[in-house]
Design a protein around this nucleic acid. Structure first.
Length: 105
DNA sequence: GCAATGACTGGTA
DNA sequence: TTACCAGCCATTG
């Protein structure tokens, strides 16, 4: 949910900008985003995604175990199929061993 | 400004 | 394996 003033904080903008740089077929964990960003924490990144993630590829940011966030996991799984993101055998979690982005082009 | 909230994580049992 | 816990910090009321 956006701020009542309708404008994201500077921190939120940085998070969203970085998430948009994650290439299709790759993912990062909340903790990774915070680390590469050099600010905040996994929890705070989650807060930003919950508030502003709708305008970003939120399905490319997952829990540390590869589980996609939100109350709409089916939406995320559909994206992974479309982007050829590697999944685990159960097809409910991302295979972080192969899909985790190192942050380098 | 303070307290509660949560799309987090790693440790412990 | 699952369940629970303390620490974490931007956001909200």
């Amino acid at each position: 949910m956006p701020r009542s003033d309708g404008y994201p904080s500077e921190y939120a903008e940085r998070v969203l900008e970085f998430v948009r740089t994650i290439p299709a077929g790759k993912v990062m964990t909340y903790g990774d985003v915070a680390e590469y960003l050099g600010a905040g924490s996994a929890r705070s990144v989650g807060a930003v995604m919950a508030a502003w993630g709708a305008d970003a590829p939120w399905w490319r940011v997952v829990f540390a175990d590869g589980t996609p966030p939100s109350s709409r996991p089916e939406r995320a799984l559909r994206r992974y199929t479309a982007e050829d993101t590697p999944l685990l055998a159960d097809r409910t979690r991302v295979d972080l061993g192969r899909a985790r982005w190192d942050g380098r082009p």
